[in-house]
Design a protein around this nucleic acid. Structure first.
Lengths: 196, 196
DNA sequence: AGGACCAATGTCATCTTGTGACATCACCGT
DNA sequence: ACGGTGATGTCACAAGATGACATTGGTCCT
């Protein structure tokens, strides 16, 4: 059973991350990636929809864990989503800070990759929202709770990978969630009339 | 001054919207668009960065109006952003429902266009957040208020263009903002112990 | 054993996107 | 009139993406 090297997909992902990091996304050709993995360009396109997708295969696991957590949690919508993201932080991102940093630096360097990341977040949000609705949450509440939860996760994630940071992602998510609650709280009737 | 037909950019935008709508985004070639506008493919790429950009030129005006509204409003961060979007709704989207519906149907039909729309929203959010920070709002609060405001706008906009809807975008934004506040309010300590 | 079959990969051809380099052409001010 | 100038057209080409077909070992069935 040694006709081909095993795990072609994994080799291509590793090669892509490496080359994107070293030369930049635009300067890396799909043929380069395939060659470094000992494969052909055509094989790359059989395993990935396009050049960017090699960086985003982990999204599937993320979505699965998240959906499962939502389905198993019984709380108010927004709290459920936040709790689900905290569980994801524990189960998936702990011990992967270095990888996350490299990956994020690559994404930050390319608008094309940022677009794809946004799209992944969007489909993630759609799945979470569907999971909430499956629990009886109304459509609007599900959407708003999900979007707010995703916002919290994104801000917390950005802090987590920022240089010099050392807090755990779980804690950061809890902190940012509290801050969002404060920001969206109904305003004081006359906030400008007194100092308190 | 009739060497060339005037408003090449506008003609290309109209041609792109028409062809994307009639044949679909993928099935429309840049050469098709240029030909229909009586121009050359190369000219298209001088006016637009890529094929999708022909659908998103309005974003610049949107950002300007939004930034101006944020700069001129003096209220809490989230309320400021919501108010700014309501002003945008009045100044830009009123009387453009039909166009918005066509445009949205085109975007909804193509993942590539959805990616671009997400990116536009992202840069819009960055600009709004910067405008808030220029008014002394802290970085985290600015980000969270902006992202929440954008979420409100997106949900309201989706309702506005949905078939059968007839409420004004301004009113929808106010409604959704109230719903988001409700969703992110701190939860009751023991919500399952009594019916109230 | 021997051949049919299969799944992963390679090869080739082709279209489209996007861009650099250069040509064209009518209008402009002097 | 003449040489800029700016918007446009023409040509060439690398890279992304995809369909059609070939290759190649391994598996399974008889």
């Amino acid at each position: 059973m040694a006709r081909w090297q095993p795990d072609a997909r994994g080799r291509l992902e590793a090669a892509a991350l490496e080359l994107f990091h070293k030369r930049g996304f635009e300067q890396t050709t799909v043929t380069d990636i395939a060659a470094r993995a000992g494969l052909d360009k055509r094989t790359f396109y059989r395993l990935f929809g396009d050049k960017r997708e090699a960086l985003f295969s982990g999204g599937k696991l993320l979505e699965e864990v998240l959906i499962k957590a939502v389905a198993e949690t019984d709380a108010a919508p927004f709290e459920t989503v936040v709790a689900a993201f905290r569980r994801v932080a524990d189960e998936i991102f702990t011990d992967r800070l270095d990888l996350a940093r490299v990956r994020q630096s690559v994404i930050d360097s390319s608008p094309e990759l940022q677009e794809r990341e946004l799209r992944k977040m969007g489909s993630l949000a759609a799945a979470v929202s569907a999971a909430l609705r499956a629990r009886g949450v109304g459509e609007t509440a599900a959407t708003l709770a999900t979007e707010s939860g995703v916002t919290v996760f994104r801000v917390a994630f950005a802090r987590w990978v920022a240089p010099g940071s050392d807090a755990s992602l779980t804690d950061l998510i809890a902190e940012v969630a509290a801050e969002l609650r404060a920001v969206t709280s109904p305003p004081e009737p006359h906030p400008d009339l007194s100092q308190s």
